[in-house]
């Protein structure tokens, strides 16, 4: 059964890709090892830490808890696609300016979760920020600076 790869077509950050995927490969493994985008990180590999967060068909998911073969026809966005070229997205800018990261392992996940939050609630309360980011863990920064970064991003994007 090791050769039961299936050809799967989907788009990543707007680019169509076609990959031969074994059912046992998680979406995270496919994105990192087959599509060569290493922004999404493997932290816990069981859905707790959020460092593997990507957007599929407009909603964030833990890519470690999904299979690559499920992605036929899906639209995937990763941290690499958030801002064009070398530009920074206002959320990235806000994390940088407010000390919202240290080692950066958790940061792609936090930023994509923030993006998802601000699309649903453009001006979230602190409580809402903490609720919507509960699936992202950071072992370095401390959550206050992350909350402040999200608040800064929200006000930058709504002004």
């Amino acid at each position: 059964m090791m050769s039961n790869r299936k050809l799967v077509q989907f788009t990543v950050n707007g680019n169509p890709v076609e990959v031969a995927i074994a059912p046992r490969q998680t979406l995270l493994e496919v994105i990192r090892d087959e599509v060569d985008l290493t922004g999404a990180k493997e932290g816990c590999s069981n859905g707790n830490c959020g460092s593997c967060t990507v957007e599929v068909d407009g909603v964030t998911i833990n890519s470690c808890c999904a299979l690559g073969v499920e992605m036929e026809g899906r639209t995937i966005n990763t941290i690499e696609g958030l801002a064009p070229g070398l530009d920074l997205h206002p959320i990235q800018q806000a994390f940088m300016e407010n000390g919202g990261l240290q080692c950066g392992i958790c940061t792609p996940g936090f930023i994509l979760s923030t993006d998802h939050l601000l699309k649903m609630i453009p001006n979230p309360s602190e409580e809402e920020i903490r609720l919507y980011l509960a699936g992202n863990l950071c072992r370095c920064t401390g959550y206050d600076k992350i909350v402040r970064s999200v608040q800064a991003a929200a006000s930058a994007m709504s002004s």
Binding site: G47, T60, I61, N62, S113, Y132, G135
Partner: peptide, 9 residues
Amino acid sequence: VGAIQIQNR
């Protein structure tokens, strides 16, 4: 159930 990413799946 879980967090937002879990609820989305």
